[in-house]
Amino acid sequence: MTMSSELPAPPVPPLLSAEDVARVVDRVAHQLIEKAASHLADLVLVGIPTRGAPLARRLAARIEAFSGTPVDVGTVDITLYRDDLRLRGVRALEDTRLPDSGIDGRLVVLVDDVLFSGRSVRAALDALRDLGRPRAVQLAVLVDRGHRELPIRADYVGKNVPTSRTQKVEVHLAEIDGLDEVLLTGGEA
């Protein structure tokens, strides 16, 4: 008989706490300011729903707070561009909103919560191509968990997390889930 079988499973400490998420967003905002430098007015942060959308809004708010320059924000729903609809079935669509000034000739930074296979980003790139012709497209993610299936990499990464394929990275954001945290659950690390 072992004692541990009678004890409840110890709570999994979050990969990122609310404070960590805030710090990471601040750091990426600073990196974006540094990279975009004099072209901040050219910058458009485009979130990939669901959780990329509030992340893009937060980044924009922090960039404005640090630099004093307001930054355009948008969202692009990628559902109709996915290559796995036949595997996973149809799903409800989400918002696609771009700034009135469009994305032509501007620096578009796609924002998502987790970078995994890279397929969402590929779909987002296809969607962007139909929406205009940006000067350049970059990618910012909160968590990069590896296991890419396409030649795609992020330009700004909040946290690199080595994971196994069976694990799940759950991102919770206050705007949608009531609190900020990132959890790594399931599987063997």
């Binding site: 729903d77 109709l80 561009y81 669509l93 918002d95 139909d130």
Partner: peptide, 21 residues
């Protein structure tokens, strides 16, 4: 109806009114 609204929003004002779905 919601899907219709999202499709209209996604295609509004764009030159290429085509989706690969």
């Amino acid at each position: 109806l919601d899907t219709t609204a999202q499709i209209e929003q996604a295609l509004a004002g764009r030159e290429v009114k085509k989706l690969p779905t």
